Amino acid sequence: MRFLVLGGGGFLGAAVVDAAVAAGDSVTVFSRSGRPPADGVEVLTGDRRGDLGVLAGRRWDAVLDTFTDDEPGAPAVAATARLLSGSVGAYGYVSGMSVYAPDGPAVPDETAPVRAAGQQPDDDPLQQRSLAKLAAERALAEHFDGPVLVPRVGIMVGPRDPSDRFTWWPVRIAEALAGRRDRRVCVPGDPTRPVQFSDARDVAGWVVAMLRAGRGGVFDTVGPGRRQTLASVLDACLAAAGGGPGDVEFVPVGEEALRRGLAGVEEERRPLWFPEDQIPQEAVDSSAALAAGLTFRPVEDTARDTLHWVRRDRGTWPDLDVDLDAARERALLAAD
């Protein structure tokens, strides 16, 4: 298959390029950088906000659009949709679970109500971002003449995760096992609560398979496709770091104590599953995508691969972009 990726240098985009190459596809990436994300990938240089000339007159079997969700997003998506309509078989666009109305069902599926202008507070940190995503979804439906696949993703983790938020867990546990840090590990809230996340490689492989088959539709693609507690995730991270039961002590700290102790720390600089105040839903129903073939690997595999990746690229004991050093963690454990 001839596969076009609009923006293949980001987290999910790079995973999609890898999946398409592994499937034997001929892959082209359109980006401003002009740098190939993988060997054997064709790169076309241009700008989504107007410089689309290198795409004209070309044909591909499928395209995946990973354009960001800032305010000009919908016009840029509409422009590529118009240009590629008739010359691309199927168009995929990466949306997100934040588009669902926060006052909707606790476990939304694809039929749940979505956000609308004036219905959520202006200071809701996800409102404008989500409205831009929804506008891009509508632009595709209006301007692209062919199947449109819209995966609505959630928290994505795994190798090359730029946030370090999931990566922090296996690294922190490995530090404890090596005696570099306290074996008492601060655990947020109730360890028995379920958590949801996706290995970006699993979403990428499914997206490529769907587009290769010419499939369209809106799908929630939030993992792990099974009930996964925070405790089981941490146990998997422990195993991935080479430890076993009793090698570290996971100490639960109440969420109110965490909020006080982390006051002033942006959510993007906290380990995953410290209070996620921006996620209003209890969970997301991804059963439609699971029925369409989406699968998720065991979390231990994700943790092991993530630990291997970060050590390979940044050293055995990497300095992560997470604001929870040993002193702050001791203070949290003492304050609860």
Rank of each mutant, 00 (worst) to 15 (best):
P170C: 05
A132F: 07
V150L: 07
S286D: 10
G216N: 03
D336A: 14
A106T: 14
G34V: 02
A79Q: 10
E42P: 13
G13D: 08
A289T: 09
V99G: 01
L4K: 00
F144Q: 03
V150C: 02
P113G: 14
V222W: 03
D61Q: 08
L234P: 07
A112V: 07
Q127M: 15
A292D: 14
A141E: 13
R259T: 14
V218R: 00
R2H: 09
R48W: 01
G242H: 01
G189Q: 00
P102M: 05
G217N: 05
V222G: 12
E256V: 14
F250E: 06
D277H: 15
G293D: 07
V207G: 02
V43N: 05
A334E: 15
R2M: 05
L12T: 06
R227M: 09
D47N: 14
V218G: 05
F11I: 11
R215V: 15
V94C: 04
E42Y: 07
G73S: 15
T295S: 14
R193I: 10
P125D: 09
V54D: 00
S232W: 12
V218A: 13
E276Q: 15
A106P: 06
M156F: 00
A106H: 09
P75S: 09
G264K: 03
P275C: 11
V171M: 01
T302V: 14
P75E: 08
G53E: 11
G89V: 01
G34L: 06
A15I: 03
E71C: 12
R2A: 08
L55W: 00
E329C: 13
V63P: 10
V233H: 00
A291G: 11
A74K: 00
V208L: 05
T111Y: 11
E137L: 04
A23C: 06
A241I: 05
V157R: 00
H143D: 13
G214Y: 02
M1Y: 05
V17M: 00
A204H: 00
